[in-house]
Amino acid sequence: MFDWRWDFTWDILPRLIAATGNTLLAAGLGYAIAVVLGLALALAQRTPSRALTLVVREAIEFIRSTPLVLQIFFVFYVGPQFGLRLSPWTAGMIAIGLHYAAYLSEVYRGGLDSVPKGQWEAATSLNLSTSRTYFRVILPQALPPSLAGMGNYLVGIFKDTPMLSVIGVAELMHTANAIGSETYRFLEPFTLVGIIFLALSLPTAAGIRLFEAWVRRKLGMV
């Protein structure tokens, strides 16, 4: 039944490992975009402007209620109709970064809301500027309660990178698929992809928990 071929496995392994680099790059870049943009989206909802809050909330709702793969297609194939011709990598990073920014902004929002009102009042009573208040007082306290959620989405974005294969980003899934169509053997490449994902996800999740504990200690909040 199972016809696992070890010689074939060793042959394709280097190609898959090389593609793992692209997967990690895609996850890392996409996550970096999401972390920064998500913070911007969260802060944008806290300005005095009601209109801005409403627009941002609707945009986040929209992104969260439509599939990522659709968003990837949309940026890549519909973009050119608006004169926006993007490489698969650029389109993919925009789509996945934006998608996860919407989710991360909700994580930050929870973290920001968890900072007691008294902290804002103490900052005002010391006459700290708004930006100083955010960056020195509020965000450092919003971070620890956000870390677990941020970690989940780091693993999430990593597992979603195969969706980028639909527009031809040469990450793991795309490469495994290419090997399959060249050799008509799918068992080994897809199994290896699964093992690689598992081998990277598990330690990441554990690492995040350690990092979280470290941050709390570092901020003296234990």
Binding site: A122, L126, R136
Partner: peptide, 24 residues
């Protein structure tokens, strides 16, 4: 000064006192 103190929990006592003088 507030009933609930409202010190910044991620700063030491000294850092709490220095924050305003340095940055404001």
């Amino acid at each position: 000064c507030f009933q609930q103190f409202n010190l910044f929990p991620h700063m030491t006592a000294l850092e709490n006192c220095m924050e305003g003088p340095v940055h404001v």
